[in-house]
Design a protein around this nucleic acid. Sequence first.
DNA 1: CAGCATCCATGACGATACTG
DNA 2: CAGTATCGTCATGGATGCTG
Lengths: 133, 133
Amino acid sequence: MQDGTCTLQGHPEVTARHGDVFAADCPTRQLLDRIGDKWSVLILTLLGGQDLRHNALKRRIQGISQKMLSQTLRSLERDGLVTRHVRPTVPVEVEYRITPLGRGLLDALRLMIDWAEAKMPEVAAAQAAYDRR
Amino acid sequence: MQDGTCTLQGHPEVTARHGDVFAADCPTRQLLDRIGDKWSVLILTLLGGQDLRHNALKRRIQGISQKMLSQTLRSLERDGLVTRHVRPTVPVEVEYRITPLGRGLLDALRLMIDWAEAKMPEVAAAQAAYDRR
DNA sequence: CAGCATCCATGACGATACTG
DNA sequence: CAGTATCGTCATGGATGCTG
């Protein structure tokens, strides 16, 4: 399956052509991949509160494997959403800090989270009704 | 791994206990699973604009398999985010409509999407810088 | 402490074929 | 047209063990 089209904001025909693999797919897809990876949002949210070290994050998130934590942090760093600060103490200390860019995304995320917490009862009710049916 | 904790909003100790598998995990996790499934957001966004039939959605989204479309629609319906309307014509016509509940989530999603479209250049630049490094 | 590499299970997803 | 069923593939992510 070859992708490269952006069906969302509504200019499929326009956006599609331009064999340009670079700016090709719509940003939405990429963003969703980032959000969808299940840990980014958690990490970003925690870092929104304070800078944290690797192990601190691991303890806070609880359920995340060391591998996924590293991996996700690396992605976030690559995307410019968090920065990595190494203090060359004896056992090294590495602290992660959210960037202004990341903080902007975080604002949007919080809205989602707020919605979730507010509406989850309704969703749960809908699910129950659907399953009962 | 047993989950059942909500490390986000900050009461791990409190939320954790309650062997209650039911209301146990924090709503955030569930929401993220929904968002993360890669098609929900697309579908929801399209339905935000107008009611659409199965095939119309399939054509619009382009890249989605028939299976995933059905499956995702079923999930959204179960969650009370969209409703399904069958018109008993000869080849049946099934139309999907977003619910007020779904629309509420959509608002939050749009914020994310807007952020993505506004900031994607910065993100791309960050990625390029990281990779060059 | 931070973090990479390896192995492996599970599940998400696509392709295909078939029903009402 | 709308939808289910089945199967194969591949990515996601956990467990474990090793390095600076």
